[in-house]
Simulated assay, not measured.
Amino acid sequence: MDDYFDSEEYSKIDFSKTKIKKGEYENCTFVNCNFEGIHASNIQFVECEFIECNFSNTIVKDTAFKDVNFINCKMIGVKFNECDPFLLQFTFKDCQLNFSSFYQLKIPNTKFINCNLQEVDFTEAILTSSVFDNCDLKLAVFGRTNLEKSDFRTAFNFNINPEESKLKGAKFSKDNIIGLLSEYKIIIE
């Protein structure tokens, strides 16, 4: 039987040296912890918060993130598409998510605030009503992605083909509209 952890705080733990216990973590806070490159598979995180943690290249196969906040975390190369999709919900603030994958995930209402999302794969994801506030989306992949009602007004460096993705009701600014037109190789001055 898996362990159950409730309302606990974990600070400065290097899980690459101290193995994380499998189980359900509810309402727990992880501060300045290192998860880099570990197998964090089959763990449930419910209403947890991760602050200044390193998740780079962490394996999250069948891991549940239910109403989880990531703040100032390094999460390079994480395959979120391998997570448990049931009740999957998270928010990212001030995070480095380069080279991560959200392929085919159904994650409406997701908030990305001040995040670096370079070369992230959003192919076939459902991101309706999501927010990309001050996010760098350089070389991020949006193919057959549902972005209806999403907010890109302060996002930058994105390239979204409006013929390939659903954009009805999505918000853009006059300054970043070029990210929708670059596909057409037109000159905007």
Rank of each mutant, 00 (worst) to 15 (best):
S100P: 04
T63Y: 04
D121C: 10
L147A: 05
D94S: 13
K12M: 04
Y4W: 10
N98E: 15
L181I: 03
E124A: 11
E163S: 13
E124W: 10
V120I: 08
N69A: 09
S101G: 02
N57H: 04
F5H: 12
I13M: 08
L139N: 15
Y10S: 10
C115T: 08
K61H: 10
Q96F: 11
D121F: 01
Q44R: 12
G179M: 08
N161P: 02
R153W: 00
D121L: 04
K111P: 00
M1Y: 01
S41E: 15
N109S: 10
F15A: 06
S101E: 07
Q96C: 09
Q118V: 08
I126R: 08
K74Y: 09
P85I: 02
D133C: 04
A155L: 09
K12Q: 15
C115H: 00
E26I: 13
K79V: 06
T18M: 12
A170K: 12
N54H: 06
I13C: 04
S130P: 11
I20E: 10
L117S: 03
F172K: 13
C48L: 01
T58C: 14
S165G: 12
K111M: 14
F35M: 04
C83E: 01
C95R: 06
F142A: 12
L167C: 02
N159F: 09
V120H: 05
E124L: 11
I76G: 02
V120C: 11
C53L: 02
F90Y: 12
D136E: 06
A155Q: 06
D3A: 15
L105Q: 09
I51V: 14
E119T: 14
E47H: 12
E124S: 13
Y25Q: 07
L88I: 02
D84W: 06
D136A: 10
I107R: 03
L180H: 07
N157R: 11
Q104L: 03
G179V: 07
L147G: 05
I20F: 07
E82C: 04
F35N: 01
L105D: 06
V68Y: 09
C28N: 10
A40H: 00
E183D: 14
V68K: 07
F86V: 14
S41V: 01
K74V: 12
N57R: 09
Q96K: 14
A125G: 01
F35W: 10
D136Q: 08
T91F: 01
Q118E: 14
I59G: 01
K21C: 10
F132P: 04
L147D: 00
F55R: 04
K168S: 14
F122S: 04
Q96M: 14
P85Q: 06
E124V: 01
V31K: 14
K171D: 01
D67F: 09
L147F: 02
N27C: 00
L87C: 05
V120E: 05
E36K: 13
K21Y: 03
E24G: 01
C48Y: 05
F35S: 02
G37Q: 01
